[in-house]
Design a protein around this nucleic acid. Structure first.
Ligand code: FES
Ligand code: FES
Lengths: 187, 187
DNA sequence: GAATTAACCTACTATTTTAGTCAGGAATTC
DNA sequence: GAATTCCTGACTAAAATAGTAGGTTAATTC
């Protein structure tokens, strides 16, 4: 197992998705702006998250990314493993033969430690972080900023079309699946 | 917290020291040979371990490195932290101000996760690995190889001085502190 | 159907970290 | 004084990380 900023970015982004899951898809552009990470870099990370079956992409206007599974079924370990492909714990990659054909001490040490670490991180789910005391207030604070930003864009689009209170169909297939448009729409 | 090959090398090397602690100092040359890591790279790692007060260096012939404390008082977390100086968990490095002056979600998430991880790795000591079932046999196996190598060197030095059964003072200050020379000496 | 949005894809560049090398100096033993 | 081994600093090579650029494709809105 390996821990780097790559995994940190991914976990943070996934947390973002988990928090806003009820309000529909989150665009990478928003995460990029909010977290100060490059958009294309995020795209690369999310490509892996998608291939690992952790997120689903929703194309078109009003689209973005959402969790492929409930937050309670996604562990921190899964997220980190999906972006850090270099998970070769030992040097021999499974076969115990890096010391004249026989198993070295390193082998046992790291398979042991790494399974323990993995078990530990597997026990922590995204949901646990979302439901953590303190998050609701922080989430609210930040939603004002992000929400305002999203609304500003939607408003601008609406004004551009002549009318103000528009917000009809943001993304029909998504609305159907979530049944929650009010939070995204303007009025 | 961060996990990389750097920390892996260090933990493995420290385990080596812990196993052979009773038999006196272990040279970096031996660890280098046995683990297949560059000697100078090991020296750089051990420089940090020494500055962190985890190991003590013993100069001169018969010298090497030994643990500065009992193996039962050295945790995996300490070792990893001492070589990976880049332990900035958050982006703001303590102050919660990376989001318009206020704390972002990332902050709480990572300080929380990282303390948990740290607690976890702090609970695992070197001694636990040395005393682990399975290690004695493996250690014995490997000691034949390393031991033979060390003995070969000592023998060569002895022969060089005309007598064979010498093994008088390998490293006096070390012998005094350990009171265990027989394992190191030839006969 | 044209415009827009945002996912999706590929290749390239820059920066940083990791790993290794080199050349020497200092303490210790013999 | 020679050998050994820690110790130091500077320098190089390779790899991973982070960011950039320029597109294509699917959905939505008008
Ligand atoms: S790493 Fe598996 S035998 Fe050495
Ligand atoms: S990382 Fe500390 S406030 Fe954002």
């Amino acid at each position: 197992m390996r821990l780097s900023t790559k995994g940190r970015y991914s976990v943070t982004a996934m947390l973002d998705l988990a928090i806003h899951d009820k309000a529909g898809p989150v665009t990478l552009a928003d995460i990029s702006q909010c977290q100060g990470i490059s958009l294309s870099y995020l795209e690369q990370l999310f490509a892996r998250l998608r291939k690992s079956g952790l997120v689903k992409g929703v194309r078109g206007p009003g689209g973005g990314y959402r969790l492929a599974r409930p937050a309670s079924e996604i562990s921190i370990a899964e997220i980190i493993c999906s972006v850090d492909e270099n998970v070769d714990v030992t040097r021999c990659k499974g076969q115990g033969n890096c010391q004249d054909g026989s198993k070295c001490l390193t082998h046992e040490l790291w398979t042991n430690l790494s399974t323990k670490l993995h078990e530990f991180l597997s026990g922590i789910t995204l949901a646990q972080f979302v439901e953590r005391p303190g998050i609701p207030e922080l989430s609210l604070q930040r939603d004002k900023k992000i929400g305002r930003f999203i609304l500003a864009k939607k408003q601008a689009a609406a004004i551009n079309q002549g009318v103000f209170a528009v917000s009809k169909n943001i993304n029909t297939n998504e609305r159907a699946s979530t049944g929650l448009v009010d939070k995204v729409s303007v009025r």
